[in-house]
Design a protein around this nucleic acid. Structure first.
Length: 126
RNA sequence: GGAGUGAGUCAGGCGAUCGCUGGAGGUGGUUCCACUUCUGGAGGAAAGUCCGGGCUUCGCAGGGCACGGUGGUGGGUAACGCCCACCGUUCGCGAGAACAGGGAAAGUGCAACAGAAAGCAAACCGCCGAUGGCCCCUCUUUCCAGGGGGGAUCAGGUAAGGGUGAAACGGUGCGGUAAGAGCGCACCAGCGGAGCGGGUGACCGUUCCGGCUCGGUAAACCCCACCGGAAGCAAGAUCAAGCAGAGGGGAGACGGCUUGCCGUCACGGCUCGGCCCGGGCCGUUCGACUCUCGGGUAGAUCGCGUCGAGGUGUCUGGCAACAGGCAUCCCAGAGAAAUGAUCGUCCACGACAAAACCCGGCUUAUCGACUCACUCCGAUU
């Protein structure tokens, strides 16, 4: 198994985290985004056979404990949905402030928004 | 039992499923990853970043000024603005609590409102009006002069009483006086000086003397004593793509002219091709390509968590803070940042809040639960 591949199950190892500042600015600069009342997602294609996520939670979301809670819910949503999501993308998830979202809310939003963003990238292939 | 004071402890539990991360071991693929087993994985404040240290880099003869900080005494400590004990003042019936607690007779400044007056002397109401002046009444037989008594008033005296204020230049009594006043005296309070006794000391007790009394404010300037080199883990150390720099090596001659291009041959690199011949492209008489060097960005590794001013237990010294001895344990270590999510269940229905180089403190936030010691009140024996 290559280092840049990963089993298609409910695990969530470190290589699926978006870590480098360069990756973050690349996705943000692409300016391809979609959102609803729970989430705002930026997306860009990567050259890998898997999808990665990065999280951006601002100070407006509350204190450190509340921000941590949001990040954990978002990671959990991604982890549980990973087999069903499009591959080969980097996503940046930004939760909406002031909304009391649950894990189920985030799962639902992540799935529909990710599929929507993936479709928007397909025309570039042709 | 009720009310309270002071120390201190804990910070939802259990189970199931799916995950994350550090370490150790094993298996598999040749330096990295995957799988697997065991094991560790947020706080009392991790917070605010307000002090003090360690550590790191830079700076540094010595002294002074400036700036900043601290401020009862004696201890503790690596150090502190922290802690302990004690002293003083104030508050509380008390257990106890609070104190930025050096200097106001070195100087400068400040004090709203009220009040006459807020700092060195003054006087609003009041009291007096002895002394000096003026006026009235009266007595001295009548008028004048003089004298006695009484009243009013001006000059003046006074600060006891009233009133204002957070604060108004000691208190009580006797004497004294026109009225009064430390004006005099006694005692008390306060201040200063000298002595004696106790204490390491802050201070405490006590005796005598003095002038009789001198207000508050220094987290206002200031004065005095003591302390302080600067910046911080994005500190800093090592390795180091790319790009840029310096130095070296590096394949050429001839001819033409419009003087930087063309032509001929030669050589070098790349390419077509299994290879040779050969073809194509680019380059060579200041330059393709290549070597070396120093600096160093992205990035990586270390710093960084096995070893610490460390935790737990126990003994010894000390009133205590704490120190020492012995035994024992290894207890988060990320880096866009792990320590979780969901469900079930129980109960007192879960507050405030999450490490980011590491320690010692302080401050602030906090649902509640509990332990120990002590005080006051009440009841009972």
């Amino acid at each position: 198994m290559s280092p840049l591949e990963c089993r298609d199950d409910y695990s969530f190892p470190g290589i699926l985290h978006l870590k480098k500042a360069a990756d973050f600015s690349r996705v943000f600069d692409r300016k391809v985004r979609a959102g609803d009342q729970h989430l705002l997602i930026f997306a860009d294609r990567n050259q890998l056979s898997l999808s990665r996520i990065g999280l951006s939670v601002s100070r407006k979301q509350g204190n450190a404990v509340q921000r941590n809670r949001r990040k954990r819910l978002l990671r959990e949503a991604f982890r549980l949905l990973r087999p069903e999501l499009p591959k080969g993308f980097d996503f940046i998830l930004i939760p909406r402030a002031g909304v009391d979202s649950t894990l189920v809310d985030y799962q639902r939003s992540l799935k529909s928004l990710a599929i929507k963003l993936a479709r928007r990238h397909w025309p570039e292939e042709a």
